[in-house]
């Protein structure tokens, strides 16, 4: 009796999913936006892969967390080099944020960010932000340097991963921008605040 089950299964499969059932071998996604499948599977549909969406959501959450830090800089340090660096980073973060929000909307992902309120690697925590607000001068510069370095290093790390694993061309292009800008900003940061210095 059991082998007969194959027939209804195949029929059901075809009825539910159409052409998607024809693919044998690795498990095809049951929906184009099905998360967790291989990026290549989604790429065939020309859609955003789960990797693209996950990276965009994380990138938005990280930028939103960094901007309040950068906004503290002008009022708390007079060093023009720091002010210039903060301005550059803020500019690129704002631009990336607009692009990544737009791509997220295009992908059809939920508007609510799954990482909101969650301390992910590279993100400044609420307690750290409080400490930062209280600091001034060189102490403030050191704290900013630490958070900027943590943020930019993590942003570049995951953008590189998106470049390698992502599928959607405009999204991987944005990842390339993040890698390029982030690496340049890290280099400037290293000149202002050498990483070997005791912190």
């Amino acid at each position: 009796m059991r082998p007969s089950l194959a027939v209804p299964s195949v029929l059901l499969c075809l009825a539910l999913l159409g052409a998607g059932c024809a693919a044998a071998g690795p498990p095809p996604p049951t929906r184009p936006d099905l998360a967790g499948e291989t990026p290549a599977a989604a790429a065939t549909t020309g859609a955003f892969s789960p990797t693209d969406v996950a990276w965009l959501q994380l990138t938005v959450a990280m930028s939103e967390r960094l901007l309040p830090v950068l906004e503290l800089v002008p009022a708390r340090t007079t060093d023009p080099a720091w002010r210039a660096l903060a301005g550059r980073v803020e500019e690129s973060q704002q631009a990336d944020l607009i692009r990544s929000r737009g791509l997220l909307a295009e992908s059809g992902a939920p508007a609510t960010n799954p990482h909101e309120g969650h301390d992910m690697p590279g993100m400044i925590t609420e307690a750290e932000l409080t400490a930062l607000r209280a600091a001034r001068g060189p102490a403030f510069d050191r704290l900013v340097a630490r958070h900027l370095r943590a943020h930019l290093s993590q942003a570049v790390r995951i953008a590189r991963a998106e470049q390698g694993s992502g599928a959607h061309p405009a999204t991987t292009a944005l990842a390339a921008t993040v890698v390029r800008d982030g690496s340049a900003e890290l280099a400037r940061l290293d000149r202002l605040d050498p990483p070997t210095r005791a912190r």
């Binding site: 499948e37 990797t51 996950a54 799954p114 301390d119 690697p121 991963a161």
Partner: peptide, 16 residues
């Protein structure tokens, strides 16, 4: 590992 193949597929290091 700081990895999550469900939440961050293809993005090593993205997770706590």
């Amino acid at each position: 590992l700081p990895d999550d193949p469900i939440i961050f597929p293809g993005l090593p290091g993205a997770s706590h």
